[in-house]
Design a protein around this nucleic acid. Structure first.
Lengths: 129, 129
DNA sequence: CTTGACCTTCCAGTGACTGGAAGCCCTATG
DNA sequence: CATAGGGCTTCCAGTCACTGGAAGGTCAAG
């Protein structure tokens, strides 16, 4: 099948699929006219990639996971390590964002938000009281 | 003062300070020898920028906030709007990441992580059971 | 035969820096 | 006075994962 059908099935933009080929994540064949030719195997790989990306894995993690997926003798520990590391990073990011949210929501709640210039948000940004 | 002292005081890398000048967030003067020359005003601006960035505001938001900060007649509503919009984006991101975390932590917990190849993480990425 | 949809490659831009190279400036020491 | 070092300058390239757009080849329908 051509790229637009692959894009429809996997819900990935065609541009992204071309990019994944460019960086060597997938290697579709070519038809006589030069068009990329996708098989079910490629669709499975793209679906796998889309799901892994949706879980926030980096493209390089996806590359590793895809290689492990295609290795019938892999150790699940290798997969688990990647996932656990990524989980840690996500939790750290959630913690960072939660701290920002707490500070910001407090500031937004204390700011009158009217025509007057007095603003606790700017006060907080300009001095560390 | 020179850039390294400004960098020490504000805890911003010198590279970042140069970048902020390049994009017009600050406009330090120049000494006779061509070195950037920072005054207390610039230090205040940089400190403000560092705090706003630490709260996750984009550089463009920072530009707006800085302009509002320097406008004695601003309406606090303008500031509040920027902050509230940003707060919404942060909350959305936290929600996204929390969903990832929930899925991932479940998968990590159910994966044996040993030498055997069977791996719920890969199973989940390859089929939508 | 033309139209329009599809495909190709290549180049540039995103955000917010960061690293590094090449070279000028300043101070201190031998 | 020469030199060594550190700090400063500019400019270019790279990061990450795409995304937009231009220029042009291919194919099926009318």
């Amino acid at each position: 099948m051509n790229i637009s059908e692959a894009a429809d099935i996997t819900a990935l933009p065609a541009k992204t699929i071309r990019y994944y080929e460019e960086i060597g994540l997938i290697t579709p064949g070519r038809s006589a006219n030069g068009y990329r030719s996708f098989t079910n195997t490629h669709i499975h790989q793209l679906t796998f990639l889309a799901r892994a990306r949706a879980l926030g894995f980096s493209v390089e993690d996806c590359r590793s996971l895809l290689a492990l997926w295609e290795d019938r003798d892999r150790a699940s520990a290798d997969v688990r390590n990647i996932a656990a590391t990524h989980l840690g990073a996500i939790e750290a990011k959630i913690a960072d964002l939660s701290a920002m949210r707490d500070t910001l929501s407090h500031l937004v709640n204390t700011c009158a938000g009217d025509n007057r210039p007095d603003c606790p948000i700017l006060n907080s940004l300009s001095s560390s009281d």
